[in-house]
């Protein structure tokens, strides 16, 4: 146990630099996936057949490719096509795109859960499609969408570790590097696990808060 604390003190600063990158990747890809997911969802419910079909097939393609393959593609294949991305850019882009599919389905479910009468009421006072979305549908859909959105945040935090496969020195990769140079596998990976858990707990509490609020109505 004493050995653990000594190692912990020694490795903590290095692992913290990994935590910073983990947070950057998580927040960056969360923002990107939210924006993309909203766009896919809006296309899906636009009532315009071409847009809706395009969005549905995009979502299926994205869903059908493993995140790790998407990351490899962005980082290793794109340079051959003349687009060179830094590891961090590729990680945020890859995770953002991968998660946009889940975000889109979540947003769509929230939008479609809104009572048709709400949309008719909006139309009956002369609102067009966009105004109906902005003033009536989306503000109500947010309540429904927030709990699953919180879960996506937690999954995203953990999946950001996949960025290690394309050399982003986030928490998991920093841990692996220390472990392979010191052979202190137990102590290092226990620390890594505890640090992920520490970051997850506030998010888990946030989800619980969202669920309570959505339940109250």
């Amino acid at each position: 146990m004493k050995g653990f604390w000594r190692d912990a003190a020694e490795f903590f600063p290095i692992l913290m630099s990994g935590v910073v990158l983990t947070i950057v990747v998580t927040v960056g890809s969360l923002l990107l996936s939210t924006v993309l997911g909203l766009i896919w969802a809006m296309m899906r419910v636009s009532g315009i057949k071409a847009l809706s079909m395009l969005s549905a097939s995009l979502i299926n393609v994205i869903r059908g490719i493993p995140i790790i393959v998407l990351l490899f593609y962005l980082y290793f294949v794109m340079p051959d096509l003349g687009v060179t991305l830094s590891a961090l850019q590729a990680a945020i882009l890859g995770l953002g795109i991968a998660y946009s599919a889940y975000q889109a389905e979540n947003f769509r479910a929230g939008i479609e859960a809104i009572d048709k009468g709400q949309i008719e009421a909006a139309q009956s006072i002369g609102m067009g499609w966009w105004l109906t979305m902005r003033r009536v549908v989306l503000p109500q859909a947010v309540r429904i969408v927030l709990p699953p959105y919180g879960n996506v945040m937690i999954m995203m935090l953990k999946d950001s570790s996949q960025a290690s496969t394309i050399t982003v020195a986030e928490l998991a990769l920093q841990g692996k590097l220390i472990a392979s140079s010191t052979f202190k596998n137990t102590n290092v990976f226990t620390m890594v696990a505890l640090m992920y858990l520490t970051m997850s707990i506030p998010l888990i509490l946030l989800v619980r808060h969202f669920e309570k609020r959505a339940g109250k109505k």
Binding site: G117, Q118, A121, S124, I125, M127, L131, R135, Q140
Partner: peptide, 27 residues
């Protein structure tokens, strides 16, 4: 204007906001 069987008021807005929604944002 239209008045519906099931009212279809906007539950996320106050009563006054419901009433002024159209004049403010449409007209």
């Amino acid at each position: 204007s239209m008045v519906f069987q099931r009212f279809n008021l906007f539950p996320h807005r106050t009563v006054l906001e419901n009433v002024v929604e159209g004049p403010l944002y449409v007209k």
